[in-house]
Design a protein around this nucleic acid. Structure first.
Length: 913
RNA sequence: GGGCGAUUAGCUCAGUGGUAGAGCGCUUCCUUCACACGGAAGAGGUCGCUGGUUCAAUCCCAGCAUCGCCUACCA
């Protein structure tokens, strides 16, 4: 056993890479669909290829890896499918920035060349995150890594698009959408982040066309959009404006006439009760404009400037903010700007570049999510309501319903180049084809059609837009498994895809953070149900966000980002993983402080040193082989029992996704039971025990530690695999060794009771007194133990060596009903009275201590005694509760009596001196 | 505006209808042959505030306060 001497300090960097490479090379995480073992599948939330591992990834993938390793070791056929997301806007932005440094933009490069460039970037830089995931220890089936723009996944995207179009669930329409003027693309509703900002509320006078001295004052936060006003609305029952409804106003600056309309959506209490209506630049006004058949006046260009129209005049070409000050200035000169107030309101920002989002009129593709006959959202709601999918923690369900019930059609087209180009074609240059059919209608097809089926023209142009990135990720749980299998290029691949889908869909669990619940999870549910006729996953475990120690969201601009890679090299991957697992309490954000990680680094080191001790303590292999099984000491039976209780609890906690509980159980057991007590106790056994007992202890020690490594492995895969390799064990690799299962036969309540009540309690009590009275550990104590019955005496006698060694006691006397020696302090444990010899200075100290202790005890007893004098408590409380409390009262009374007794004795001794 | 969550030891957080727990930090002692990334002992909390239900509330209910988050078309 001593062939290798391990270093005193565990050095993670010396073992981690070795095992990561080994696991992958040995294909230990490869899942085969034909296996007969129960399937367990997860798909990774695909990180962006632009990404580098941040703590959110680290948490997300640590939790998934714990589940994957746990289920795999427990005997399941685990598929954890990895991959990355092409991240349309984000990736395009990265490459565009790179181009900008070279002084070119994508338009000079052209679409084809630009896309080539992005692919090239992906080849060189897109693999970073995958390498980092491997370093984290993620036990994915790396042979099945996917990318959202893979050929197979792109095929799935086209198939889904075409089918939805054919079913009428995808359509093209002109309407107001969220537009990022910087990215120059449409965004979906949830890609807009709302941010409170301090702005102004401008009060502007609009003169009546017929009576220019009569004016209506409107209040707006965006004066520049007045150039696009096509009405002013008031509430139909508003006394102030009633007579004016239907009259015309002269819109200042634009110099056109607009009507005053009545609409109940107007809030009479806000501003002046009159609101300008700009249907082309405000979502409210769009709805109002449609209700009243108002014209839509677009006054903006796609890059967020004032367009050139008859209305915009001198303002055209100005940016929004330039236009705002120019318009207010012009109004002021005309005497039409009545007042300006401070006003805070929410401004929509692009989630990628934080530019203010503009409501913008344009033609886009939409997914109809609540079609009355075929409601994607409706089925998705039902799946959760009927518990086909569990959201964990459950509290997220309300959020989910709230969002899904108010969901609007999903704008899926984006005016960028990097992504899945929309499979729709148009006849070039023809509004109406030869056949007389309107050829503005797109031809939606799986592949480029040879000619227009309506007019026969071969001059077709594909829709330049690409699909929202989340469109392809919505298909992730089945597209990655090979759907649609019938479109696979070869019979073998077809068969493989069919098998994969059959075995692993629906997947078992999805682990994700709540910020993409709607971006991704809800859409996967909609698409999965629609195309697979089955939910995409059973459990959705929603974890928190990782924040810094102050609770701030980590961001590069704040400079409070903790880089998990730095943490891994400083403290080890296992320490980081264990920290994240231990902090993953449901429904609470994680505030990560470095000290915590340090603590778990220490834990890893503790384990390492326990292993060193065990290796040194065990006899040579040759000796171990001979001499039979051996007998177990009380410590052996105790640790076995404790171990199997822990095994049961850990399995249970993992089954409930309580990673925090499971890691706390492991930490507590390994450090405070296995190391603090068991290893200390068996020092006695291994030194003084019989040969048979030494063999038994050596065997128990080995088995317990080996089991413990298996139990801990999902949390700390590297150090456990490394240590396991040094120990005798069944099987080849820890990563695929069986996960411990609780064995009721190993539970031993009697031994647990003895170790707890006889050994640990006595040792702790003696140590406590030693500490209180400053008796140095080097000074050996003399003491007597008094028990009530012979049985107790026997128990103590049998365990005397443990107590003597752990409490550092030299001479010890045991008896039934022993009287206290002349100068001795008493400590009570549940099983005995322990007397410790004192001298005079210590006697004084002890008197002092007893006085304080008594005062405290009396205070503690007060509420308990009070209860027993309450007749209502005695009559109404359950019997067990009364009994339990009575027992406590008895103990406290006895303790008090004993302390009083001692106190008087000691005082007497001092006085008589 | 609506919804959700939080408020427990100096800090970060578990937890339970029956005299409060962990880790870190702190204090004291100890370099005893696994580990100073260690060992032993200890201090420290009217469990946000106010009411209610109950024999009993940190836990259940109501209100309030503070702080987060989500969501929303008061321009």
């Amino acid at each position: 056993m001593t062939e290798e001497i391990l270093n005193k300090v565990y050095e993670p960097d010396k073992v981690e890479e070795k095992w990561a490479v080994f696991w992958e090379k040995e294909r230990l995480f490869h899942a085969a669909p034909e296996s007969t073992r129960p399937p367990y599948a997860m798909v990774i939330p695909p990180p962006n290829i632009t990404g580098s591992l941040h703590l959110g990834h680290a948490l997300n993938n640590t939790l998934q890896d714990i589940l994957a390793r746990w289920r795999r070791m427990s005997g399941d056929n685990v598929l954890w499918l990895p991959g990355t997301d092409h991240a349309g806007i984000a990736t395009q932005n990265v490459v565009e920035r790179q181009l900008a440094k070279e002084g070119i933009d994508r338009h000079t490069l052209g679409r084809e060349a630009f896309i080539q460039r992005v692919w090239k970037w992906k080849e060189t830089s897109g693999g970073t995150i995958v390498k980092q995931l491997k370093r984290l220890g993620a036990s994915c089936d790396w042979e099945r890594e996917r990318f959202t723009m893979d050929e197979g996944l792109s095929r799935a995207v086209r198939e889904v698009f075409v089918r939805l179009y054919e079913e009428g669930l995808i359509y093209r329409a002109e309407r107001l959408i969220n537009w990022c003027p910087r990215c120059r693309t449409a965004l979906s509703d949830i890609e807009v982040e709302h941010e409170e900002s301090r702005g102004k509320l401008y009060y502007i006078d609009y003169p009546l066309a017929e009576e220019p001295d009569q004016r209506i004052t409107v209040a707006t936060t965006r004066p520049e959009t007045m150039l696009g006003d096509t009405a002013v609305a008031v509430h139909p029952e508003d006394e102030r404006h009633r007579g004016r409804i239907g009259k015309k106003l002269r819109l200042p600056l634009a110099d056109v006439e607009i009507p005053i309309i009545a609409d109940p959506a107007v809030d009479r209490a806000f501003g002046t009760g009159a609101v300008k209506v700009t249907p082309a630049h405000d979502f409210n006004d769009e709805a109002m404009g449609k209700r009243h058949g108002l014209p839509f006046e677009n006054i903006m260009t796609p890059d967020g400037k004032i367009a050139e129209t008859p209305r915009t005049r001198t303002f055209s070409g100005k940016t929004i903010s330039e236009a705002r000050s120019a318009v207010t200035q012009a109004l002021e000169q005309l005497g039409l700007l009545r007042k300006v107030e401070d006003h805070t309101h929410a401004v929509g920002k692009c989630y990628r570049c934080k530019t203010a989002v503009e409501p913008f009129l344009s033609t886009q593709w939409f997914v109809r999510v609540n079609d009355p006959k075929n409601s994607l959202a409706g089925s998705a709601i039902e799946a959760v309501r009927k518990k086909k999918i569990r959201l964990l923690p459950e509290s997220w369900e309300n959020n989910y319903y709230g969002w899904m019930e108010n969901i609007q059609d999903w704008c899926v087209s984006r005016q960028i180049w990097w992504g899945h180009q929309i499979p729709a074609w148009y006849c070039v240059g023809r509004d109406v084809g030869q056949c007389g059919i309107d050829c503005k209608e797109p031809i939606v097809a799986r592949a480029r059609p040879e000619k227009c089926p309506r007019c026969g023209s071969a001059d077709l142009r594909q829709d330049p837009d690409v699909l929202d990135t989340w469109f392809s990720s919505a298909l992730w749980p089945f597209s990655t498994l090979g759907w649609p299998s019938e479109l696979q290029p070869t019979p073998e691949k077809r068969k493989e895809a069919e098998a994969m889908l059959k075995t692993f869909y629906p997947t078992s669990a999805l682990v994700t953070s709540f910020d993409i619940l709607f971006f991704w999870v809800a859409r996967m549910i909609m698409m999965g149900l629609h195309f697979m006729k089955e939910v995409p996953f059973r459990d959705v475990y929603i974890h928190a966000l990782v924040r810094d120690a102050e609770g701030q969201k980590m961001s590069k601009s704040k400079g409070n980002v903790i880089d998990p890679l730095e943490i891994m090299s400083k403290y080890g991957t296992d320490a980081l993983r264990f920290t994240l697992a231990s902090m993953a309490s449901p429904g609470r954000d994680i505030k990560l402080a470095e000290e915590r990680i340090e603590g778990y680094r220490n834990f890893a080191n503790k384990l390492w040193n326990a292993a060193r001790f065990i290796m040194m303590s065990l006899p040579e292999e040759s000796e171990r082989a001979t001499g039979g099984a051996g007998t177990l000491s009380i410590a052996d039976r105790w640790i076995q029992s404790r171990l199997h209780r822990t095994i049961g609890s850990v399995n249970q906690s993992l089954g409930n996704y309580r990673f925090d509980e499971a890691s706390a159980l492991l930490y507590q057991f390994i450090w405070h039971e296995f190391c603090d007590w068991y290893l200390e106790l068996i020092k006695v056994d291994l030194q003084d025990g019989s040969e048979a007992q030494k063999r038994g202890t050596a065997a128990t020690l080995t088995t317990a530690f080996e089991t413990l490594l298996r139990l801990l492995h999902p949390f700390m895969p590297f150090i456990t695999e490394e240590l396991w390799a040094h120990f005798p064990h069944p099987g080849e690799n820890l990563a695929v060794a069986p996960y411990p299962q609780a064995d009721a036969g190993k539970l031993d309540a009697a031994s647990e009771g003895i170790v707890r009540e006889i050994i640990i309690d006595a040792v702790a009590a003696i140590r406590n007194l030693r500490g209180e009275m400053n008796i140095p550990p080097s000074e050996e104590l003399g003491l007597s133990i008094s028990v009530d019955r012979d049985q107790g005496r026997e128990l103590f006698e049998r365990n005397l060596p443990y107590i003597k060694r752990l409490a550092r006691v030299s001479h010890l006397e045991i008896g039934v009903g022993l009287a206290a020696p002349k100068m001795a302090a008493t400590v009570l444990t549940g099983a005995a009275k322990i007397y410790i010899q004192l001298d005079e200075t210590r006697l004084n100290k002890e008197i002092d201590r007893l006085e304080k202790g008594l005062a405290k005890l009396e205070k503690e007893m007060e509420p308990v005694e009070k209860k027993f004098s309450d007749p209502l408590f005695l009559s109404k409380a359950p019997k067990e509760v009364v009994a339990k409390l009575d027992l406590q009262r008895g103990e406290m009374r006895e303790k008090k009596y004993k302390m009083n007794n001692d106190l008087q004795r000691f005082r007497g001794m001092i006085d008589s001196k």
